[in-house]
Nucleic acid binder design. Structure first.
Length: 941
RNA sequence: GGGGCAGUGGCCCAAUUGGCAGGAGGCAACUGACUUAAAAUCAGUAAGGUUGUGGGUUCGAAUCCCACCUGCCCCA
């Protein structure tokens, strides 16, 4: 082996990146003569630095996009930035830098980092959501929704800071307190902007047209939370005979939704959410003080606390009664915070005998419990039962329905529910109904750094949308950031004051939009980021839409990925794809693809790269003891091998450090606390002089990377050390992509060796002119087996097995080179195939070696190597012989063996004969060879 | 609290979907070469298992079902 020169990624990577860019190699242009593939990966938030998670998400997606391109697809693989959001505003407040400046500086930096990946991003299609040219269309979408009854203003519970007099985002509230001032935050009903999310709830439950991961579909289904039942109207009962002036008006309706209308006869009280508008109206004077105090206290609890099942139930009687419409019974109305205003109608009928939470509440407050479902073989008694019976049984105490079986089925499938719904509908007191857990999408934010909501409030209190020719409503730059939590737009007179369409003074809406709104349509903008006649160019859309493959994190399951689907359906129904569909039809593409209202046909999620496990420093700390705690004036980091036999102090591995308090594992599952004195003398080998306590390293478990844990892996450092190809390949090789896992800085060595080996194999081997035919045939077989393996791997997002297959091929080539029995032509052909297979994973080295082999530029414009099953086939295979499922023998047989032959050979084998002992087998099961698997035969005796 | 995912040699992971648990691959380990020595590099080599636990279905279970344990992620 003669190595002419060394592999040096720092030379070849920038060189090829510049060449590709200069040649616009990855520019994707509409070409109706070729099939298209729109590969989309989630766009990053410009936080400042690209972290290893971005590489893990994007480089495998890039490999797959490159593979599709080699398969003959015209591939679009764009990139952009989701650039509005809270961190920019926090930076503004903390560091006195304008959010715009901060964001664009970060974008600039991240663009550079993204380029170092060597990905095939088409930068000419880049979109940045905080650019006026982008958010003009975010505003335009809002306006379309506003004008078509998909956007509205309504009441919602928000986090309200009474101290700051402002609304806070969920992220700004920690433990019920404002994260900045530490002052309490309450839940308050306020007017907010919403999209009619629930309008598409039913359609969003249909996943039949899309290839998305099962867990995502399950999560979305649960998130939408469809439940079937009935809406029943109760009425407030007439006031008490004494007739106090309570404001209670007999006959006020209270609508409830129930999934169990078959238990209506067991409703012994009602509960209203504390925020329910009726609470104030119906409360009697003698209960008023208690109710008001309760409502105020409830506002301080978060929804998490309120819905916790193990929480002690609280509530107050309002003094009012309602009439149960099925039996005209007078039942008390309570208010309690376990009922949510945002679910259903914010009021429930309580059936304590058959609902766990109602039961607990009734027992606590001594309310009546009446059994209306009697399970078979059990005699439930409302007075003595110790838990609710939410299951099946026969209806009792239910007037005309006594004896009707209630099953575990939900909705109309349950005979009891079915019968009761019919009866309710016939009498006009209730209706079959479907309720969704999903709530409308609250899109307004009381923040500065977001797309403005293009609405003007007229003097008379009505609203109008900003005319199209005035879009976008621009965010003013000259704003001041104060740590008040309030949006600076509220104080910007130039922004605030405007005129309506008739020239009268008016006030601009100061709410901005949720950033999820910006990220709900970005893949349309990529199609034509400079298009001015609409959010996207229909000519581009007709070719590229819908997205074929979308990759990104599963954490977006119920938010972004559901918003994206809603948006596509709303756009479809507002006719935004009509022109696009017309063009599709003209080119013979099926316009139904857009009628589905599904933005992405295939979705795959990557897992998370976690921090690396790290040992803590092994220390010997000495000082003075006080109780069980050592106050150390000296801390030495030592090698455990050099541990002294006896010492006065604490010795062991640091497992935790909080300020100057160390927790030390002294072995045997025992721990000691060491407080390091401020002037303590600290020594660490390899670091000269006394050290600071911050330099002491503590043990890290495998967990999510974060700056505070100090386990962040910086991709730039690894790229500088080994090159982008190696980092790419390691990320694809070292993990199950869909699962993620801990970073292993030793594991990357295997990839470093692989790439260096490939370099040496391709540049340094001079094969003989002629070789041994059998050896060449074997190498060719391995090459074709690898083509199959790598192809399957890329199709199935199983990147690690793809790289593993390439490593195995490397081993074959090395062995062949050593044996020197493969001739130049066969060798060159094998190397050629290997470089093509490597191109998606390691684009730079593949390009460099491709050029050095004298092939025409570029390897990335070549077709994918063709797989030939005949060339991959083995001549002889191992027939596995089992007896009762246990392996007893292995036989070498011809590859295409039939079941009869296999059975004859198996029954004749030593392993079987011994166990069969002259008798007849009860059954013989032959499993033929399929895929790369060898045949098996199982003899049952 | 609700929802989701995962558990395979010392470690990261394969196992073509119910068919030999490794002639998947890698890390680590060991031996040798180079070196005064070590690291790195190169060449070679074995060893390592009740597939988290317990039940069930099956001719056959890492794979399917039930229960439990442990870990991770998401939402509120």
């Amino acid at each position: 082996m003669t190595t002419t020169d060394k592999y040096n990624p720092q030379d070849i990577e920038p060189k090829w990146q510049q060449r590709w860019e200069a040649d616009r190699l990855y520019r994707a242009v509409v070409d109706w003569s070729k099939p298209k593939h729109y590969a989309l990966t989630m766009l990053p938030y410009p936080s400042g630095d690209l972290h290893i998670g971005h590489w893990f998400a994007m480089t495998p997606s890039d490999a797959r996009a490159r593979y599709k391109r080699m398969r003959g697809f015209n591939v679009l693989f764009p990139m952009g930035f989701d650039a509005f959001g809270l961190p920019a505003e926090n930076a503004a407040i903390q560091r006195n830098i304008h959010p715009k400046k901060w964001t664009y500086a970060n974008i600039e930096n991240m663009r550079r980092q993204l380029r170092s990946m060597g990905a095939m991003f088409d930068w000419e299609r880049e979109a940045v959501s905080c650019d006026p040219s982008y958010y003009k269309w975010t505003e335009w979408f809002f306006k379309q929704f506003f004008e078509n009854d998909l956007a509205y203003r309504g009441e919602a519970l928000v986090n309200w800071s009474p101290t700051l007099q402002t609304v806070l985002a969920n992220e700004q509230v920690i433990d019920g307190k404002d994260e900045r001032t530490g002052q309490p935050v309450i839940q308050k009903m306020m007017t907010q902007w919403f999209f009619r999310y629930t309008r598409y709830a039913e359609e969003m439950l249909d996943f039949s047209r899309i290839d998305w991961p099962e867990p995502i579909k399950t999560m979305q289904t649960n998130w939408i939370g469809k439940s079937e039942g009935a809406r029943v109207v109760f009425h407030v009962a007439a006031p008490l005979p004494e007739g106090e002036g309570t404001g209670v008006r007999a006959g006020d309706p209270i609508e409830v939704f129930t999934t169990r209308p078959d238990t209506l006869w067991g409703a012994t009280f009602m509960v209203l959410a504390p925020e329910h508008p009726l609470v104030e109206k119906i409360t009697t004077p003698e209960q008023r003080a208690a109710v008001e105090a309760y409502v105020e206290q409830a506002a301080r609890a978060t929804e998490i606390e309120r819905t916790a099942e193990d929480r002690e139930k609280t509530g107050v009687f309002t003094g009012a009664y309602a009439i149960n419409p099925v039996n005209d019974e007078r039942i008390p109305i309570w208010t309690a915070d376990y009922v949510m205003i945002s679910y259903g109608s914010g009021a429930i009928m309580a059936v304590p005998a058959h609902d766990e939470r109602d039961f607990e509440f009734a027992r606590k407050f001594g309310l009546k419990v009446r059994v209306v479902i009697q399970p078979e073989g059990m005699a439930l008694d409302g007075d003595t039962m110790t838990e609710a019976w939410p299951h099946e049984g026969l209806m009792v105490n239910s007037g005309p329905f006594d004896g009707t079986p209630a099953t575990r089925e939900k909705g109309r499938k349950n005979p009891a529910i079915n019968a009761v719904i019919d009866w309710l509908e016939a009498r006009g007191i209730g209706k079959e109904a479907i309720n969704y857990r999903l709530r409308d999408w609250l899109i307004s934010r009381q923040r500065y750094w977001g797309a403005p909501i293009p609405v003007i409030h007229r003097q008379d209190g009505t609203m109008e949308a900003v005319p199209d020719d005035q879009l976008p409503v621009l965010l003013p730059d000259d704003v001041e950031f104060l740590p008040t939590g309030q949006s600076p737009l509220l104080f910007h007179q130039g922004f605030l004051n405007t005129v309506d369409s008739e020239g009268r003074p008016a006030r601009r809406e100061t709410d901005t939009m949720d950033t999820f709104m910006c990220s709900s349509w970005y893949w349309y903008r990529y199609l034509s980021p400079h298009y001015e006649a609409g959010p996207f160019d229909p000519e581009e859309a007709a070719y590229w839409l819908p997205v074929d493959t979308y990759t990104g994190g599963a954490e977006h399951a119920t938010m972004h990925l559901l918003y994206a689907r809603w948006f596509a359906k709303a756009m479809r129904d507002l006719g935004m794809f009509e022109e696009t569909q017309r063009i599709m039809r003209a080119h013979g593409r099926d316009p139904e693809l857009l009628a589905w209202g599904e933005p992405m046909l295939q979705l795959r999620n990557q897992g998370q790269v976690l921090g690396e496990e790290r040992d803590g420093h092994f220390i010997l700390a000495t000082g003075t003891w006080q109780a069980a705690k050592l106050f150390a004036d000296r801390v030495e980091v030592i090698d455990p091998k050099d541990a002294p036999a006896s010492f006065d102090g604490v010795m062991g591995e640091i497992v935790k450090r909080t300020e100057n308090i160390l927790t030390v594992d002294i072995g045997g599952g025992d721990f000691r606390t060491v407080e390091v004195l401020p002037d303590a003398f600290i020594t660490i080998p390899n670091i000269d002089g006394p050290c600071r306590i911050e330099q002491l390293r503590h043990h890290l478990d495998i967990q999510r990377m974060s700056k505070s844990k100090g386990n962040v892996v910086n991709p730039d450092e690894w790229v500088a050390r080994h090159g982008a190809d190696t980092v790419r390949a390691y990320l694809m090789f070292g993990f199950d992509w869909q699962k993620g896992g801990p970073w292993d800085s030793k594991g990357i060595q295997g990839v470093v060796r692989w790439i260096n080996d490939v370099w040496d194999i391709v540049t340094g081997i001079e094969p003989p002119a002629a070789g041994d035919l059998e050896a060449e045939r074997t190498l060719e077989r391995r090459v074709h087996q690898t083509i199959k393996k790598v192809t399957d791997a890329l199709e199935n997002f199983s990147f690690n097995t793809g790289v593993a297959g390439l490593m195995a091929l490397r081993n074959e080539l090395k062995a062949a080179a050593r044996a020197g029995n493969v001739g130049a032509d066969a060798w060159r052909e094998a190397v050629r195939s290997m470089l093509l297979l490597m191109a998606p994973f390691t684009p730079h080295i593949a390009e460099e070696l491709w050029a050095r082999q004298g092939h025409p530029y570029s390897v990335h414009m070549q077709g994918w190597p063709a797989y030939d099953a005949d060339k991959a086939a083995e001549d002889l295979v191992t027939l596995v012989v089992q007896v009762n499922g246990k392996v007893r023998d292995r036989l070498q047989v011809p590859a295409g063996i039939t079941a009869e032959e296999a059975e004859r050979l198996a029954l004749d084998s030593d392993g079987v004969k011994k166990l069969l002992d002259g008798g007849q087998p009860r059954r013989v099961i032959f499993v033929e060879a399929r895929g790369g698997q060898e045949p098996k035969i199982n003899v049952v005796v």
